[in-house]
Design a protein around this nucleic acid. Sequence first.
DNA 1: TAAATATATGAACACGTATTCATATGTTGA
DNA 2: TCAACATATGAATACGTGTTCATATATTTA
Lengths: 115, 115
Amino acid sequence: MAECNITEHKEKAQAVKACMPSDEKISEMGARFKVISEPSRLKILLALSCGELCVEHLTEAVEGNQSAVSHQLKILKDNKIVKNRRSGKNILYSVSDLHVLTMIEMAKEHLDCDE
Amino acid sequence: MAECNITEHKEKAQAVKACMPSDEKISEMGARFKVISEPSRLKILLALSCGELCVEHLTEAVEGNQSAVSHQLKILKDNKIVKNRRSGKNILYSVSDLHVLTMIEMAKEHLDCDE
DNA sequence: TAAATATATGAACACGTATTCATATGTTGA
DNA sequence: TCAACATATGAATACGTGTTCATATATTTA
């Protein structure tokens, strides 16, 4: 009993290839996930999901060091996931891409289900 | 005009810290995103989203090489994102975690909006 | 303007990991 | 049992990147 119908699968492979997004698009999709895959950045986003924070307090909230947080904020900003504005001596950061918050929330709930 | 109310932010930082998930949980969330952030794995999942495929045809569908695909399949399987079953000489793979397909679909749509 | 404070940035380092090559394992049919 | 085929796996390599340290830039206050 040949459960694996070769001919059928070959056709399916062709069909799959035909509707496969371009490598460039796949890379962009992956890049989005990669940005939020790093725990240090995820933690920053979880903190900012509660609202705007300046770098100093954000650093305190994630219990990190200032330089590391700043580096990660740059990556998040370059990827348009957070935005910032100056307020006196401080720079206030907030989430600009609500879409990623949704995905993070989904991931969190998914883990909650497991335990 | 001090737009950045230090006291208020300090309190917010404390509140944020209080409801911050554990480092372990954050790592697990990140791990989920990391698995689907790699273009080679993303491509495999996009192929499998159309249905079950054996390794050979999957390799063909993603235009990769057999060993690389097999290595990535192992990672996907270890993370319970795909499952497999034997059918004669072939091993058939399929997506077991529909949740990640949802997120991938979301990411795809998000990019479509941008262009 | 000088000092203090807040944030950003460059370079160096350490570490994880995707890919490749060669080969092992497992399955079928003669 | 042997040959052919399908898949998995180990080791080596190459590459990207997160963190740290030192320092630069920018803003406010004295």
